[in-house]
Design a protein around this nucleic acid. Structure first.
Lengths: 126, 126
DNA sequence: CGCATCAGTTTCCTTTTGGAAACTACTTTC
DNA sequence: GAAAGTAGTTTCCAAAAGGAAACTGATGCG
């Protein structure tokens, strides 16, 4: 008569799973990490500059991702009454708390590339 | 004559973007973080136990995600010649280097929940 | 007037992702 | 010999994600 550990082994673990799900939902999609990474280094940036900086993104996606992040208070959107109207996006203090995650991810990715170069037996990556 | 910062502002930044892309490609999909999170706490686990532990996953997805991660050497697959054949999945030493990322993500998710509870004005999350 | 820029939005389409359920194949237990 | 457990695979389908290109609408430049 085995009870099959079935029920999720601990409350701590459930909390952890939920936490991971929350974070990843907020950072979902192909572009949020890149936009945030850019905004973390520049602080302020206009729409068109982001469009040029974030390689490969289109205006539809950029617009959508920025809206998502504005809702989640990771960035702010400010309209500036300049000659041709400009809009400035800025990372919030709250958004900056994602810094350590992005740093860890970047760090890992770099060591991954290095591993690829030294031990030639790992999977190819683009 | 403004040169439009256009070209990605620094090599460091390009490296960073590439690094983020690499990591996120390896950890892509709905389930890898959860499987890894589980494996990081238990070390070894059989297929059927993972199927029960990772809430909501189906055998197709579990199988596929494990294969991806085996290719990328994050987990190992070991067939055990027990009465009904069992297969044990184990996180590799290399896979364990993802620990800090997953920890940061979990940490952020937890503080996000806390922020939701205290300041009631943030977006609802499932 | 015609063209360009800024900041998007809309439409239409393809690709990717993921889930449910059925099925394979082998072994053990009742 | 039927049922149940092991570890998957296959098929079929729906939903989500994402891209290209056209369009809006305001303003400014020559």
């Amino acid at each position: 008569m085995k009870k099959k550990l079935s029920v999720n082994y601990s409350e701590t673990c459930k909390t952890r799973i939920t936490a991971i799900r929350d974070t990843m939902e907020i950072l979902s999609g192909k572009w949020k990490f890149h936009i945030l990474g850019t905004l973390l280094e520049t602080d302020k940036m206009r729409f068109m500059d982001l469009l040029r900086e974030v390689e490969g993104i289109g205006s539809k996606m950029l617009s959508k991702e920025l809206q998502d992040m504005e809702i989640n208070q990771l960035v702010t959107r400010t309209v500036q009454q300049t000659k041709p109207i400009t809009v400035v996006y800025e990372i919030t203090e709250y958004g900056k708390t994602l810094g350590p995650i992005i740093d860890e991810i970047a760090k890992w990715g770099i060591s991954y590339r290095n591993a690829l170069h030294t031990t030639k037996d790992r999977k190819n990556a683009g």
